[in-house]
Design a protein around this nucleic acid. Structure first.
Length: 442
RNA sequence: GGUCCCUUCGUCUAAUGGUUAGGACACCGCCCUUUCACGGCGGCAAUACGAGUUCGAAUCUCGUAGGGAUCACCA
């Protein structure tokens, strides 16, 4: 069975790059009736916070991504120790005693003399007695994985035939000086134990993957299928870290974006499918195909998201949205929703239209003579659904105007906007009192 | 600096040596609508640059330029 995992570290809120990876893993698995595992990579306990773990779960749930199982690396520490022992026995791991400062200095030197900052493996020269001496002095080692300096090849689900020469890489540290495991090892151990079949993640993991392939093999397993998605950039083409990293899912939520608008965009952008709005995640699942994703970097455009959001609102009935409308401190009726849903990009705009119809706004008078005539011909009595048509028919006869010439001054005066929902219903909901107020309140 | 990856309309992309370089979104125009929008129809618009291979190159090769990623006792 297909089994994937999404493995965030709880060191911050889910941003849109992260979320896209989660979504694509979810869609990939569900399309194959597979298993989607949420794995909390909290081995860095200095930076990991429960608050973020909760937030990540909450955000995933908000968009309808449900996990079939949940694991936390912090509860699996003994397995990582066993893996280290195995690697030590096979001479694929070795102890190192350099301090972080020494290593950093070394890298700087290499870089300034034009050389790649790759670890020189000097700890490999330590004899058993050297190591014993250092330990006796109270020094405790960190451990590195000994890479095999050769080409690693794999057939990437997204990138196709891929290759990396391991001599361009430092032997990765897998256990810290204080004994805590590092992601590189923990992730592989978990992927083996939980029988993950496919790893889908960003192309920033490309070199990690190359090293981890050797780790899978050293642990007498075989690597899962690997797919590296091209990273999202902002509209100018700048990388994720610069700006998109700061757009979290919660920001989008707060800005009034709907989960399905976000999922619709992020599941299709960068693929050869058309970007369109989907009402239901199952529709996206059923035609998901990882091979449709391209190798170049797609751009995330909030305007595109706005468009999808407004298309979604048009599709929603009052009953679909009424829960979300409770957050407003004014009561929204079904009639009101049906009237304005075709003219909004996000829910916050409801407040504007609510004020236009029921509250106070600054009307715009751009044709006083005409508006005077409108005032004179305003029908008496309570408004009904035909009032607008009757009224404008009279106005048309009186003034000879029609079309935009007829409607625009009324729209501007009554709503303060040059566009918006259909006037007939809008005026009916407004009622005679409010219309009179706007017409006379110049 | 080393290594890896990327570059087709504004945007997402299709075209795996022969196409008038196709589609979707956006934009513009027309129609529909006595207004906004929806919808229908149409239009604008691209192979980063330079060589090479070939009868023929978006496609293969090399170079140039631009962009991204990575090179942590982070994940």
């Amino acid at each position: 069975m297909t089994k994937v995992r999404f493995a965030p570290s709880p060191t911050g809120y889910l941003h849109i790059g992260n979320f896209r990876t989660a979504l694509i893993n979810f869609l990939f698995a569900k399309n194959k009736n597979g298993h989607f595992m949420l794995r909390i990579d909290d081995t860095d306990d200095e930076r990991s916070l429960k608050k973020y773990e909760d937030a990540i779960k909450e955000d995933l749930s908000w968009v309808g991504i449900n996990w079939d199982s949940l694991e936390k690396q912090s509860s699996r520490l003994s397995y990582y120790d066993q893996a280290l022992q195995k690697l030590l026995d096979k001479k694929r791991a070795y102890p190192c005693f350099e301090t972080a400062e020494e290593l950093s200095l070394k890298r700087k030197k290499q870089l300034s003399s034009g050389k790649p900052p790759i670890y020189d493996r000097s700890a490999l020269n330590l004899s058993d007695s050297d190591i014993a001496d250092l330990k006796a002095k109270g020094r405790s080692p960190h451990y590195r994985f000994l890479l095999d300096h050769k080409d690693v090849n794999w057939n990437d689900l997204v990138k196709g035939t891929s290759q990396y020469n391991m001599s361009n890489l430092s032997d990765p540290v897998i256990i810290r000086e204080d004994g805590r495991v590092i992601y590189t090892l923990a992730s592989v151990v978990d992927d083996i134990d939980f029988e993950v079949t496919d790893i889908l993640r960003g192309e920033d993991h490309m070199t990690n993957s190359a090293a981890q392939i050797q780790l899978f093999e050293a642990l007498e397993s075989s690597p899962p299928n690997l797919g590296h998605l091209s990273l999202l950039t902002d509209i100018s083409g700048a990388g994720l870290s610069k700006r998109l990293g700061s757009i979290s899912l919660r920001d989008l939520k707060d800005e009034g974006f709907q989960p399905m608008a976000i999922s619709s965009l992020l599941s299709k952008v960068g693929s050869s499918d058309a970007i369109e709005i989907f009402r239901d995640i199952n529709q996206i699942i059923s035609d998901f195909d990882i091979s449709k994703f391209g190798k170049s970097k797609p751009k995330f455009d909030k305007n595109e998201l706005r468009g999808l959001n407004s298309k979604l609102f048009k599709m929603l009935d009052f009953s679909d949205i009424s829960n979300q409308l409770k957050k407003f401190n004014f009561k929204i009726s079904s009639d009101f929703w049906e009237l304005v849903k075709g003219n909004i990009e996000n829910l916050e705009e409801l407040e504007l239209w609510w004020n236009i119809i029921y509250g106070n706004i600054e009307p715009k008078y751009n044709d006083e003579n005409f508006l005077n005539t409108a005032l004179e011909t305003l029908p008496e009595g309570n408004f009904d659904k035909n009032t607008w048509t009757n009224w404008t028919s009279i106005l048309m006869e009186e003034t000879g105007r029609k079309g935009k010439e007829l409607y625009n001054p009324l729209r501007m005066c009554l709503t303060g906007q040059n566009k918006g929902p259909e006037m007939a219903t809008l005026v009916f909901l407004m009622g005679r009192g409010k219309v009179l107020e706007r017409l006379t309140n110049k």
